[in-house]
């Protein structure tokens, strides 16, 4: 087992416009990328559980040419709204780091 954070070159989150939040999980070699995909450690269901929303609201992409996995969700709070605490959406990825990969 390894943690996703140990396998990825970069895990990041960012606004995709003011109303959506997007996560990029990027790898620097094909073996690690393939391991994560094949392990099924990172799926729309996993994202839905972590961010507590229906799986139907998770957009999920495997992007082989970039050696990346991408997921997008509706922003928990719209960017800059009174209860939002992350204007750029830049620090919402932390729970992904600890995902266990077989």
């Amino acid at each position: 087992m390894a943690k996703l954070g140990e396998l990825a070159r970069l895990i990041r989150s960012k606004n995709a416009g003011p109303f959506e939040l997007t996560f990029d999980i990027m790898f620097d070699d094909e073996a690690k990328f393939a391991r994560v995909i094949e392990s099924k450690a990172l799926t729309p269901q996993v994202i839905a559980e972590i961010y507590r929303l229906p799986v139907a609201e998770v957009k999920f992409f495997i992007v082989p040419e970039a050696l990346a996995v991408k997921a997008s969700i509706p922003r928990p709070r719209f960017q800059g709204d009174l209860l939002d605490s992350d204007c750029h959406g830049g620090q919402q990825y932390a729970p992904l780091i600890d995902i266990e990969v077989a």
Binding site: N15, G17, T22, K59, A68, S72
Partner: peptide, 9 residues
């Protein structure tokens, strides 16, 4: 194409 987009394609 991933950056700040909800859909990379």
């Amino acid at each position: 194409s991933l950056y700040e987009n909800a859909d990379p394609y």
